[in-house]
Design a protein around this nucleic acid. Structure first.
Length: 337
DNA sequence: GGTAGACCTGGACGC
DNA sequence: GCGTCCAGGTCTACC
């Protein structure tokens, strides 16, 4: 099996930094807890490949990347870029340290990087498939999109489909075979926008582009509202705006102890994270993530088809939340102390 | 500008 | 097994 070696940032820990956002549980991604192996399938344009990523030496040591097929030089380069994007290998240790200065609660665990997709397009679609649906629905949609439209690799797995492929699909096909429901036409329209080169990905990815301009541009796309745009912004590395949803209201009410209407709680959650400034979303997300881990164990132990299908608070019964509330609050207080 | 209702799927629940 | 209800963010029509 062909192997690549990638030098990560000095503080990089695969099992922590790959299992840091829900997308690690969505196809085409897979985390294998017993072997601490992250695998995914990526369509590189000329070929699709399934890769297995491990870090045998532990924190800061090289990543070992095995591919299921021999790649030529341009494909290897494309693969390295995709993995760097996905695993946030382009985010140096200093950036994470800057976050820990603002929010020392996560210095000990070292949390700071949020994994994302191999491409901007996949991030946008994953966001759309997470809107107005419960988590199992998102899992299902992504699995079917890969299986129905994604290119097959030598190992028999499927990559996330390219924009060009979805752009050619009929909305009715997506609805019938991928269970995307009313999102069908919006997803095809989004794919057409990307496929016809109407997206300047470099402009969106650039830290020098004002995030407000990115936000406004995203709102112009079909299926992208304020929540989705804010979520895509954090996936682009702009953390000052919080994509708050019903999950945030639950967190505000059940963990932070806020009271009032959903709207009032959401505003209080916004204010709560304002002091973290440009790192606001990291603070918010890792606080939420810590809550999940308190209930379900460390994220690197989650199994996609069991724990991974039920990890959001929406899946937790009120009686369970009440039972654990004291422990959760005590944990947060310890961190705040 | 603000608001109500439709959109669709899958899980929970009652029978 | 079947029917009903509900959760979830965006879009559109209407006031």
């Amino acid at each position: 099996m062909p192997t690549l070696r990638i030098e990560p940032p000095s503080d990089y820990l695969l099992r922590r930094d790959a299992c840091s956002y829900g997308y690690f549980l969505l196809e085409p991604n897979h985390w294998d807890p017993p072997t601490s192996t992250f695998s995914t399938s990526i369509d590189l344009g000329t070929v699709a490949t399934t890769v297995q990523v491990t870090q045998p030496g532990g924190k800061g040591t090289p990543l070992k990347v095995r591919t299921d097929s021999k790649l030529d030089a341009p494909s290897k380069k494309a693969l390295r870029l995709s993995l760097a994007r996905m695993l946030r290998l382009d985010e140096p240790a200093e950036v994470v340290r800057a976050f820990h200065k603002v929010d020392p609660r996560f210095r000990k665990s070292g949390r700071g990087r949020l994994m994302r997709s191999a491409s901007f397009f996949e991030d946008v679609l994953k966001t759309v498939t997470s809107c107005n649906v419960t988590w199992p629905g998102t899992v299902n949609m992504n699995a079917k999109l890969c299986r129905v439209l994604g290119r097959e690799t030598a190992s028999g797995r499927h990559a996330f489909p390219l924009a060009e492929t979805i752009a050619k699909a009929r909305p009715a096909t997506l609805r019938a075979r991928c269970s995307v429901g009313y999102r069908d036409a919006r997803i095809v329209e989004l794919a057409k926008i990307f496929a016809r080169d109407r997206v300047d990905a470099a402009w969106f990815e650039s830290p020098s582009t004002p995030s407000q301009e990115k936000f406004d541009a995203l709102l112009e796309w079909p299926g992208i509202g304020p929540y989705a745009a804010a979520n895509i912004l954090q996936l682009l590395g702009c953390y000052e705006r919080l994509p708050l949803d019903t999950e945030s209201v639950r967190h505000g009410r059940d963990v932070l102890g806020f009271t009032g209407t959903g709207e009032q709680i959401m505003q209080r959650v916004h204010r709560h994270f304002e002091p973290f400034g440009e790192h606001g979303f990291r603070s918010y997300w890792f606080e939420l993530w810590a809550h999940y881990e308190l209930r379900k164990g460390p994220s690197h132990t989650w199994i996609r088809d069991t724990t991974g299908k039920s990890f959001t608070a929406a899946q937790l019964k009120p009686v369970d939340l009440a039972k654990d509330l004291a422990a959760i609050r005590a944990n947060m207080n310890r961190r705040n102390a």
